[in-house]
Structures are given as structure tokens and as C-alpha cells.
């Protein structure tokens, strides 16, 4: 079932979306869509059928934190796990992400193994 999961990758930099998409594919998650900022992501999420969100923090229009809080405020999609991507291990960012209900965070640049570990851990927690 897990390989059928549908991911939404949110980042304003298309190269980064492609990197994440490629890594997910190598891990075995081939079903992914992309959005270029929080606002676009929300629209897609409300359209339904997503199982997992990987979102950058620093984006124009609506940043990753705003997206996270909007997701958590919407009954229809609040169950979705959100993995926050940050450029460096800033303590305040991580704390803020955790408080806002992020399922986890990952620091750029990350390897396939790190992403796999983070994603799988979140999915296991969901099942459990």
C-alpha cells in the first residue's frame, strides 16, 4: 500500500522539487505531484487524494509554516503528515515546526538514505 501513496512536493525552486521527486522515486514512491508555494499546495491538497506532504519552509506568497498551520486547521486534510525541509538545522525553526504539528523535519542537503529513514518513520507512526 505504501508505494501507492501520493506525495505533494512543495518548493518554489523547481530544481529542488525535481531533486526531491527523484529521491522519492528511488526510495519507491513513484506517485508525486508538485506545487510552487503554500497557496498552490493548499488548492491541490483540497482537491484530495494526497497522503503525504514534503514542504520547503522559505517560499514567497505562503511559506511552509503558514501552509502547515492551514493544513492543520482544515478538518478534511489535517491528518496529512507534513515533512518540513529546511536549509539548516536552526533550532527555532525545528521547534516552530514541531509546535505547528509537523510530522518531522529534514535538513538540506540530504541523502536518499536520510529521506527514506524520515519518510518511513513517519509512515510507521501513522500506521501504529
Amino acid at each position: 500500500m505504501t508505494t501507492e501513496m501520493k506525495f505533494l512536493i512543495v518548493d518554489d525552486f523547481s530544481t529542488m522539487r525535481r531533486i526531491v521527486r527523484n529521491l522519492l522515486k528511488e526510495i519507491g514512491y513513484t506517485n508525486a505531484d508538485e506545487a510552487e508555494d503554500g497557496a498552490a499546495a493548499l488548492l491541490k491538497l483540497k482537491g484530495g487524494a494526497f497522503d503525504f506532504v514534503v514542504s520547503d519552509i522559505n517560499m514567497p506568497n505562503m511559506n511552509g509554516f503558514e501552509l502547515l498551520s492551514q493544513i492543520k486547521a482544515d478538518a478534511a486534510i489535517k491528518h496529512l503528515p507534513v515533512l518540513m525541509v529546511t536549509a539548516e538545522a536552526k533550532k527555532e525553526d525545528i521547534v516552530m515546526a514541531a509546535q505547528a504539528g509537523a510530522a518531522g523535519y529534514i535538513v538540506k542537503p540530504f541523502t536518499k538514505a536520510t529521506l527514506e529513514e524520515k519518510v518511513n518513520k513517519i509512515i510507521e507512526k501513522m500506521k501504529g
Binding site: F13, M16, K108
Partner: peptide
């Protein structure tokens, strides 16, 4: 910030 993120990979 964005360029840095990409360059890291």
C-alpha cells in the same frame, strides 16, 4: 537561500 539549497545537492 534557494541557490544555496540547490548547490548543496
Amino acid at each position: 537561500h534557494t541557490i544555496k539549497g540547490g548547490a548543496g545537492f
